[in-house]
Design a protein around this nucleic acid. Structure first.
Lengths: 178, 178
DNA sequence: CGAATCATGTAAAGAGTTACATGATTGG
DNA sequence: CCAATCATGTAACTCTTTACATGATTCG
């Protein structure tokens, strides 16, 4: 048996707000959600078909003629989403971090290797952080935006906090090392 | 084509220090490495066979009679490991965080749900942090330990820093919310 | 109209998880 | 000696990614 399916619940969560096409769902994974889960269109389209068969979602009347297919959440889907959110999270987040792995295998004498690893990683994280902060400035200009999309606001904040923490650690550890 | 193979490099990194059995390698993933990559024995044993066929590792003479199989890194393996470490890391770390995902889908009126999510997560992270700090106290009692296993020390520190950052964010955000 | 791209979908293959299997060893 | 477990290995199945495919639309 494989690992527990998460993707359909994420799709339900997105459709909870408004009907979306497969393409639009795919694009969401380039934004905040992508910080905490990845999925590509070749997973999403079959998943939508399956969820429709299971009556978690159905096809929306919006733009029915056009070539885009809008899906909307059903009342069954809403229940399933609520149940999932209420299930306690008992696993730690999974992190796959090549930087940390490479660090694991260096010895203190590999000074150049260590410094290069750190410098590259600092650049990488800095760029991502800049991108996240730009999104924050764009989307959450006033309090009403925050109220309306509170969950989105929280996980964007969380992503920013995480990257800032990493960046700070990288910089102080590199400074200590030198 | 699938994602890039990482496991063999991790195994090389472990074998760089001393010969190990498949079982011992498996157990390493319950320690620091498990913070940044997961693997189970059913991946590791076939991978060892494959790496031996590719001459990245070979069977050690240690305990050759016993039922345990010790593997050691070859000089080819050492080169391949060094090359891998020197390749720049261009991808961001992958994070899969169910807590953040669930947070994404709540609205501000779901006060109980949000508080429960936060409280559960605080407990989860606290326990993990306690465990990591216990390992730190156990392994790195003096400076010579740090020198000798510098990479191990760094990624343990990194894991601790990460969890502490998350915990601080969880606590202040929960306090703000109330 | 022709080229680029959009939106949807399918195919192929390795990655990773859980469960099952087996012979050796240990311990009461 | 029998049960538990150890160390290794295999099997079945899903996940995930990359590449390929196709018809509709847009734009110069």
């Amino acid at each position: 048996m494989p690992q527990k399916r998460i993707l359909p619940y994420i799709i339900l969560g997105l459709l909870q707000e408004c009907p979306l096409t497969g393409k639009e769902i795919t694009l969401q994974f380039k934004n905040e959600i992508g910080e905490f889960w990845k999925a590509s269109h070749s997973q999403i389209y079959p998943e939508l078909t399956r969820m429709q068969a299971d009556k978690w979602i159905d096809e929306s009347e919006i733009d029915k003629d056009g070539r885009k297919k809008y899906y909307q959440i059903t009342s069954l889907g809403k229940q399933i989403l609520a149940n999932w959110i209420n299930e306690p999270v008992i696993e730690l987040p999974l992190n796959r971090d090549l930087f940390s792995l490479k660090l694991f295998f260096v010895t203190q004498k590999d000074a150049e290797v260590i410094e290069k690893l750190f410098n590259d990683q600092i650049i990488l994280i800095s760029e991502q952080l800049k991108h996240l902060k730009a999104r924050e400035a764009l989307l959450f200009t006033d309090e009403s935006q925050i109220q309306e999309h509170y969950g989105h606001y929280l996980i964007l904040k969380r992503a920013i906090s995480r990257q800032e923490g990493q960046l700070a650690w990288l910089k102080t550890t590199l400074a200590d090392f030198k």
